[in-house]
Amino acid sequence: MSTTATPATGKQTILSVESINTYYGDSHILKDLDLRVDRGETVALLGRNGGGKTTTLKSIVGWVPPRSGRVMFEGTNIAGREMMRNARAGVSLVPEERRIFTNLTVAENLKLAQITAARPGWSLDEVYAHFPRLQERSANKGDEISGGEKQMLAIARALVQDTKLLLLDEPTEGLAPLIVREVEAIIREIKSKGMTILLVEQNFYSALSVADRCYVIDQGQIRYEGTPDELRGNTDVLSRYLHV
């Protein structure tokens, strides 16, 4: 069995995080956290700094393995599995710091992702068609490109692989407003091609403009689940957990 049907939506669930507890040393960060992402859906995980958003993504990919609970991806419990195995199964994390290899060129960063992929995703031509700036910058080193270009490269690295679930950690953080619009357009484009996305954002408006559904996390627990419209109308949740 590779996927399970969700009774509520009838859609196939690709990721189901079930009661995970994650710690940094003695600090209990995620407390019985549950969340679900259906295939083809874009889900936003919102919350204040230190609420556990990034830790949730790190727990899913195996970077900070949960001490208990399950992370079901396509019907298999991947909790605690090596990052490499999860990546090769199709779970791609674009981390907050982007982590471009600054000693490699843009083209080499993409080639590396192609080499390490279990199965190919987009071709280089497709990537360059969608990100013409990356083609212009292909011979530049990773530390010679702008923050926006780094973000595009980080996303493109995930796309040249056969990514089934794209985890984006604060993709608009630190970017100029114009570049934020560009990154949002890219996320919408990837989404329109059928990609499943779990998006972590502090930028509430940016996240709601692309998400189908959203969760609000606070102190390591999910406090709210709903559609962007429902959340926009819930002033209590907005003021209590998001300070909006």
């Binding site: 990052m83 490499m84 990546a87 590396l112 992702a113 390490t116 992929a117 279990a118 692989q161």
Partner: peptide
């Protein structure tokens, strides 16, 4: 870490 996140066998 990033190599592993991309599926590379470090």
């Amino acid at each position: 870490t990033m190599v592993q996140l991309l599926g590379g066998n470090v």
